[in-house]
């Protein structure tokens, strides 16, 4: 892959921050796709097709990473040399772990009772929780540059995302 645009924020001409302009991200994503999508190079040379495929693929990957808050936070930490999901990175406050177990129990109970409504409610509750954590991350990343604290919050956000996707899977299975 060519070296110019391997950095995701730079690719979308965005400042490297947690609090990004998602509208601008979307607009720039579409501009990049418009310039690089394989549909634009159907009758081009093999080398041009390859370059198109590589850049369109990269921008899809980069867009996916930046548009989701948890993966954006994880990526920002990676840029600081921190792996938020490393096996060694296990510390989370006890109260959050208790809370997480509680969510898991609610999920399992609702699943066993085939109760889609409760699953839906739990899902929305967790999304509210995510929003609070995202607000914290704005301060930690963009103002305080406190990457240690940001790592902990990012891990929480990743946990919640995982529970959310398990809820969605459960709903899908029941539906």
């Amino acid at each position: 892959m060519s070296s110019v645009h391997t950095e995701y924020f730079q690719l979308f001409a965005l400042p490297e921050k947690f609090d990004i302009d998602t509208k601008l991200l979307e607009t720039n994503f579409r501009k990049i796709q418009s310039a690089s999508h394989p549909d634009r190079f159907v009758s081009a040379t093999a080398a041009e097709k390859l370059a198109s495929m590589q850049l369109a693929t990269l921008s899809n990957e980069a867009f996916d990473t930046l548009k989701n808050a948890a993966s954006r936070a994880k990526y920002l930490l990676e840029r600081q040399g921190i792996n938020a999901v490393a096996d060694t990175n296990t510390a989370l406050p006890l109260d959050f772990l208790m809370q997480q177990m509680e969510w898991r129990e609610q999920l399992e109970d609702a699943k066993a009772a085939k109760d889609i409504e409760t699953l839906d409610k739990l899902y929305r509750e967790l999304r509210v929780e995510s929003k609070t954590l995202e607000a914290e991350l704005i301060t930690l990343f963009d103002d305080d540059k406190d990457y240690t604290a940001a790592t902990e919050v990012t891990r929480k956000l990743i946990f919640i995302d995982k529970v959310c996707s398990d809820i969605q899977q459960a709903i899908e299975y029941l539906d």
Binding site: S2, H5, K31, S34, A35, A47, L50, A51, L55, S59
Partner: peptide
């Protein structure tokens, strides 16, 4: 190949 990649990057920069 490298030339095509460079042109692709330039084209994307222009688009942005």
């Amino acid at each position: 190949e490298a030339f095509a990649a460079a042109r692709m990057n330039a084209s994307v920069s222009h688009a942005l």
